[in-house]
């Protein structure tokens, strides 16, 4: 009974929070609405006995919303909480597409004869996840780690305002008449400037 009530509260919060993201008229409120939606989804995931994944989702999303708020203030250059705005396009077509997507998914969910449950859950699910990661599923983590590292490198390269190609040219061969490496900097620096 309590489980059922909790599920419905989380479900309504998750979907209502998600809708509120694109209905409220300021970005700060949208960020909070998204955080509420994510925490509710994390709650449902914890109810599915995925304690570790659920807690990770909640912690990650709260931090992510905080970072998003910082980026919004940076990009918008104003107090986003005080500036109601409407920056949307093709709302009607998108609403039709989203509704159609939901209907197709909902019909599939109801019509599909889902198979019976097979196998049984381990006594300690978090421990079993750790053992899977460090044992039979280690290749998954070994694949994810270079992807995450590549993401760090790629995002730094993209976000860096003056990388070495900006300073030394496309072929990294910008030199002064003496043949020494000579970066094109707004303000020269280093020894002998």
């Amino acid at each position: 009974m309590i489980e059922s009530i909790l599920f419905w509260i989380f479900a309504v919060l998750a979907v209502a929070g998600g809708i509120a993201v694109f209905v409220v008229d300021s970005m700060a409120r949208a960020t909070y609405a998204l955080a509420v939606s994510f925490v509710a989804v994390g709650g449902i995931i914890v109810m599915l006995h995925l304690d570790y994944i659920g807690v990770i989702t909640i912690l990650m999303m709260i931090m992510e919303m905080a970072i998003m708020a910082v980026f919004m203030v940076m990009f918008m250059g104003m107090n986003p909480a005080l500036m109601p705005m409407d920056m949307t396009h093709s709302t009607r077509r998108s609403a039709v597409l989203a509704t159609l997507t939901f209907l197709v998914l909902a019909v599939a969910i109801i019509v599909i004869p889902w198979p019976d449950r097979t196998g049984s859950a381990a006594a300690d699910l978090t421990r079993s996840l750790g053992e899977a990661i460090m044992g039979s599923k280690m290749l998954v983590m070994l694949t994810i780690s270079p992807v995450l590292f590549a993401t760090i490198v790629a995002s730094l390269v993209l976000a860096n305002p003056r990388g070495r190609y900006d300073r030394y040219g496309a072929d990294l061969d910008r030199r002064d008449p003496d043949g020494r490496a000579h970066p094109e900097d707004p303000i020269g620096g280093g020894i002998g400037r």
Binding site: A14, V15, G18, I19, V21, F22, M27, A30, S37, V41, M68, F71, M72, F75, M76, M87, T88, H89, S90, T91, R93, S94, A95, L97, A98, T99, T101, F102, L105, A106, I109
Partner: peptide
């Protein structure tokens, strides 16, 4: 499915990259 559809609507309609 509801979350996915709402997200799809947002990703298609919003102009601000962060949104």
């Amino acid at each position: 499915a509801a979350l996915f559809s709402v997200g799809l609507y947002g990703a298609l309609t919003q102009q601000v990259v962060v949104m």
